[in-house]
Structures are given as structure tokens and as C-alpha cells.
Write a protein that binds this DNA or RNA. Structure first.
Lengths: 126, 126
DNA sequence: TTCTTTACTGCAACGTGGTTGCAAAATTAA
DNA sequence: TTAATTTTGCAACCACGTTGCAGTAAAGAA
């Protein structure tokens, strides 16, 4: 499973993640690469990259899927992607945050993941 | 704006919220009420109830829209829906949590809302 | 280099959640 | 009861995402 072959398409997508450090939505990628590859290919490459621990995915405030490179602690077996994300309500831009947020204990429940999205205004939109 | 007329459809939906205390997905409601009203009507009633401060909406782990009754502090002008939600990864059930989670300060950004979803196993699925 | 295996890609079609425009029905106030 | 206005149903549409399958390309073996 995962990325086995370093195809041109995979390289192209990896380059995009390396250039921009921000999270990228699948929709953006499809638009950006519409002359280079099929949207199905994009979805499948991202899937493989994620299951390989290279990127992680999450949903933005509108439920759209985003991907960002994993900074540390992620592998194909475990994703340390509990970190919160920030989305600007005006320009839509999204960042991974490095702040730690303490997850509360809930009686009679176990908590395994969390999706935390903080929504507000970014530096440029304030 | 908001709910002006207490139609049969509105009453039906309000009753459902009163009976079940849990959050309900729009998809569930559409299935539940498929013989009584059109899905467009459901979407529009929920929209009105939300803008009236009667219910609040949020997205689950798959990006599906859920609604739950507002317990306190919500109005048509302001939604105090900063509380986190819990979703069971097995049965999919969702609860509003009453725990307070402190939202961190982020330099050069303002934070106005937050969507916090804690994912794990519920009482029955542990 | 060429061959062979197997992963990857493109295409077209499909599925689902959600939205829109408009005419008909229902509600409220007069 | 009437008139004004909000709601509703319908049908069509849109966007994001998925699937099956045939053709293409990568990687190792010969």
C-alpha cells in the first residue's frame, strides 16, 4: 500500500506541497493541475500520500477536504495529526497550528482523534 | 427573517428536536420525514430555525451537516455555539459537550468561532 | 536493452449532499 | 373573506467525491 512508484504526477504534487507550506484543498489542486492530470488521479495520489504518512487531511469550515504535509510524528501506521487548524473567514486560507490544545476527558468515552478548526481573521484580513 | 409562521412542517421538526436530545443530521431528517415533506423544505426550515437561534449547525467527521437545539446563550444575532461535539467512530452518534475548552491566542490573528469535534468511542461502543 | 509484471492514470459514468427558480398552497392580518 | 406574503413541492441543477475498466507507464529481471 502507499506510494510505490514515483511518477511524474506524484512528483508534481509533492513539489506543490514543498513550495507552498500551507494546507491545500483538493479543489484548488484540481483547478491548478487541470491541464496536467485528471481529478481522479489527484484524489488517488493524495490518498496514497496520506496512507504513507507524507500528508494528512482534514475538513475546512465548509466540509471541503484539505491536505497538508506532515511535519513530524506521522507515519503510515500512525498520524499525529491532532493539531488544530486555523481558517480565515474572509480569504479562506488555512494554516496548521503548532499550539497544543488539551483534550478534555469525557466520562465513559474514549477519545482517539480530534478535529479542531479555529475560524477568524488572518494577518492580512484583519 | 427567521421562523415567522408555525406551519405543520416546522412543528414536526421541532418535535423531533424535543424528543431526541441528540444532534440530528439533515440526511437522517430527510430519511425520517421522506413521506411527510420535501427535502428542500427541510433544508429551508433548518436554515430559518438556525437564523432564529433555535438550533445550531455544525459538520461531523465526514463533513455532513448536523443540527442540535441550542441550550443557552443563543439568539438570532449571536450563536454561543463554541462548545465541542463528540462523535462515536463506530456508531456515528453525536453529542454536544458541555465542557469548556480554552481557545488559544494566536499572534496576529483574531479567532471568532471554533469547530471542535472529538472522535472516539461512546459508552455503548467501547 | 528488452521483456514482463503490476501499479498508475484517464475517462466516463455515477452517487450523494446540498441549492435554486418558480408556480402552487398555506398562513396571517385586515 | 380577501389580500398580501411566506412556505412548500417539484424538478432541475451544481459541486465534491467515487468507481470500474481499459490503456499506459514504471521498475525489476533477463
Amino acid at each position: 500500500m502507499g506510494v510505490i512508484r514515483k511518477t511524474k504526477s506524484v512528483q508534481t504534487i509533492l513539489n506543490i506541497f514543498n513550495e507552498r507550506k500551507k494546507a491545500v484543498s483538493v479543489v484548488q489542486l484540481i483547478e491548478l493541475l487541470k491541464d496536467e492530470m485528471n481529478k481522479t488521479t489527484i484524489y488517488r495520489i493524495l490518498e496514497r500520500l496520506e496512507s504513507d504518512g507524507v500528508v494528512h487531511s482534514f475538513l475546512d469550515k465548509d466540509g471541503l477536504k484539505l491536505y497538508a504535509t506532515c511535519t513530524s510524528g506521522c507515519s503510515s501506521t500512525h498520524h499525529a495529526d491532532m493539531h488544530p487548524h486555523f481558517q480565515c473567514q474572509d480569504c479562506g486560507k488555512i494554516d496548521c497550528l503548532t499550539v497544543e490544545m488539551t483534550i478534555p476527558e469525557i466520562p465513559n468515552r474514549t477519545i482517539n482523534f480530534s478535529q479542531i478548526l479555529l475560524i477568524g481573521k488572518c494577518e492580512e484580513c484583519i
